[in-house]
Simulated scan of single mutants.
Amino acid sequence: MLLAAALLGGTAAAQGGHGPVFGLATPTLPEGAWNGDATLMSAGRGGERGLMARQTLRYGLTEDVQLNLSVPQTLAALPSPSRTRIGTMMGGMGDLEALALWRLQKHYPGGGRRVESTALASVLVPVVAERGGVRAAPGANAAVVTGYASRSLYGWVGAGAQGHLARDGDRLGPLGYASAVVGYRPPVFQGDYPKPDLRVFVEAVAEVAGRDRVAGEAVAASGGERVLVGPTALGLYRAWGLGAGVLFPVYDRSNGPQPREDARLAVNLSYWF
Rank of each mutant, 00 (worst) to 15 (best):
G16E: 11
Y59H: 14
S117L: 04
T118Q: 09
Y108S: 13
G23Y: 05
A76N: 06
A121K: 01
L29Y: 03
L120E: 08
N68A: 10
A14N: 10
H18W: 11
V21L: 14
F22A: 07
T88E: 08
L104S: 06
E48K: 12
M52E: 03
P30A: 09
L29F: 10
T39A: 13
G19I: 06
R58V: 02
L78A: 09
D64R: 14
G19L: 02
L101Q: 10
D37V: 05
A25Y: 05
T88N: 03
R85P: 05
V65M: 13
T56K: 11
V65S: 02
A14L: 07
A76R: 14
P79S: 09
R114S: 12
A121C: 07
T74C: 00
V71L: 14
E63H: 06
D64M: 03
L101S: 10
T28G: 03
T84M: 01
T118C: 15
L57I: 14
W34F: 13
A53R: 04
R83G: 09
A121W: 08
T118S: 11
D64C: 04
G19F: 02
P72I: 11
D64V: 03
L24Q: 06
A98F: 13
W102Y: 15
S117A: 15
A14C: 08
A119D: 09
S42W: 06
D95E: 15
G17N: 09
T84E: 07
Q15Y: 01
P109C: 05
T28M: 10
